[in-house]
């Protein structure tokens, strides 16, 4: 205590100086509008800059969560669109089952493994049967085609990529509806071949190719790509080079589309085949 007092006594001159200066400045800021405004302005600017910086940092750090939240939000909205759209069509249905009110169900997932350089490329998703994924669900990214789920485990799913020689997709030319089957040719991750388009179909470079909706997997209208080149093949069909709109090298978040009416439709179609 005594040493503290001694210390204070030793620096009393400096302390008093600081005290009086602080007092003077208080007087200055309180009695002179100009100085007051300048002072307030300065502190506000300083604090403002500081807050902007910290906010930027915070936003950057929460980008992962933000992305996840947005993906989920997208899903919810897509589900709402789908359910309202379907309810407009209600009178086409004979069974009034509220569970089946919705035809397609969207789930978001993240790609955790991807390849583009093999002949049979597969992707792995971070969701599985526990999150409602089943085989034969469609996988799209921003409305661009990615592939089809082949198998699911509890928490993961494997997807046959479009870049797989085994996958054939029912596709059509958007402007006139001629449909054919799309198949990857095994090289170059940006092009695939569309076959079975008849010669009398009017097609041009740059035409849009979308899914036909004839398979039970993909809804109609998912973007596949654009016509890059086409040539006549022996017979009466075109062989069309399609430039895929999906950039398989940059895929990250995808949506999985489940067709809730898939089983019903398959059953009906099987029955029809049997009856033949």
């Amino acid at each position: 205590m005594r040493s503290l007092l001694n210390f204070l006594l030793r620096i009393h001159f400096l302390l008093l100086f600081i005290l009086i200066e602080v007092f003077s400045f208080t007087l200055l800021f309180n009695n002179n509008n100009f100085h007051k405004a300048r002072f307030v302005n300065f502190t506000r600017q300083f604090a403002g800059n500081f807050y902007i910086k910290t906010t930027k940092l915070k936003q950057y750090l929460s980008l992962v969560e933000e992305n996840k939240r947005l993906a989920e939000e997208n899903n919810r909205l897509l589900n709402i669109i789908e359910s309202t759209y379907k309810s407009d069509e209600i009178f086409f249905r004979s069974v009034n089952d509220t569970i089946l009110n919705q035809r397609y169900q969207y789930t978001s997932a993240r790609i955790i493994n991807n390849s583009i350089n093999k002949k049979h490329n597969f992707l792995t998703l971070n969701k599985g049967s526990q999150q409602g994924l089943r085989p034969e669900m469609a996988v799209v990214s921003n409305g661009n085609i990615v592939g089809v789920i082949k198998g699911v485990s509890r928490n993961y799913a494997t997807v046959i990529s479009v870049l797989n020689l085994d996958l054939r997709i029912s596709a059509k030319v958007q402007k006139n509806g001629y449909f054919g089957s799309l198949n990857w040719k095994g090289e170059g991750y940006q092009t695939a071949i569309l076959n079975e388009i008849p010669l009398h179909a009017d097609i041009q470079r740059g035409d849009t190719i979308i899914t036909s909706g004839f398979s039970t997997i993909f809804p109609e209208g998912i973007l596949i790509g654009y016509i890059k080149d086409f040539e006549e093949k022996a017979g009466s069909f075109y062989e069309i080079d399609v430039e895929l709109s999906t950039d398989f090298k940059r895929l990250n978040n995808v949506n999985v589309i489940g067709n809730l009416l898939q089983a019903e439709r398959k059953k009906l179609e099987k029955q029809a085949e049997k009856n033949d």
Partner: peptide, 24 residues
């Protein structure tokens, strides 16, 4: 010294309506 300086500055301040400026 400090106190008398403050008093002097404040006196000038009061006459020129710049309280705190001359005193500091």
């Amino acid at each position: 010294l400090l106190i008398i300086a403050f008093t002097l500055g404040l006196t000038i301040d009061l006459f020129s309506s710049t309280v705190g400026m001359h005193s500091s």
